[in-house]
């Protein structure tokens, strides 16, 4: 009886350890946060830039690390040093715009000048910065 319990406990510990190992080293490498699955916070291009310019700390509380959905006009399309496509959306403010790095494969969805994109807001430098963005609409 005692032996059964010990064997059972050891098996359980073994499974738990394997589970933890799998989660930390396998699952976390293959499963990344995907902005496409998240509900985006819808905000006009001009508004998010204005919020950051007015009070950066407050804007960070509202937008930082969140999926944000922005509609706007494309100002510039470029490539970063790793080959990812980046786009700048016009805010209407001459000092700061919205700088987005697109997820690989999303660049094919760019057609026109007006678009809706959803990305993770990582903060504010010269522009409001979005990362891992997906294109929802482009015409």
């Amino acid at each position: 009886m005692k032996r059964k319990i010990v064997v059972g406990a050891l098996t359980l510990i073994g499974f738990l350890a394997a589970g933890v190992w799998y989660y930390v080293f396998v699952y976390s490498k293959t499963h990344h946060r995907n902005v496409a699955d998240e509900q985006g916070l819808i905000v006009p291009a001009g508004q998010i830039v204005k919020d950051y310019e007015t009070d950066e700390a407050r804007a960070n509380k509202k937008y930082l690390n969140k999926a944000v959905e922005i509609e706007g006009f494309i100002l510039k399309k470029d490539k970063d040093q790793a080959g990812n496509t980046t786009i700048t959306l016009r805010s209407g403010d001459p000092m700061a715009n919205i700088f987005c790095t697109l997820k690989p494969g999303e660049a094919n969805k760019l057609h026109g000048t007006q678009m809706v994109i959803k990305g993770i807001c990582t903060g504010y430098l010269s522009d409001v910065v979005l990362n891992e963005a997906v294109v929802l609409k482009s015409e």
């Binding site: 490498k29 499963h31 990344h32 690390n65 990582t122 903060g123 504010y124």
Partner: peptide, 20 residues
């Protein structure tokens, strides 16, 4: 040079979360 910490991407999502 200015960099946003949340713009650092790791291969492992859990590591990225801990880093942040």
């Amino acid at each position: 040079f200015s960099a946003l910490i949340k713009s650092f991407k790791f291969e492992n999502q859990l590591m990225e979360d801990h880093f942040n």
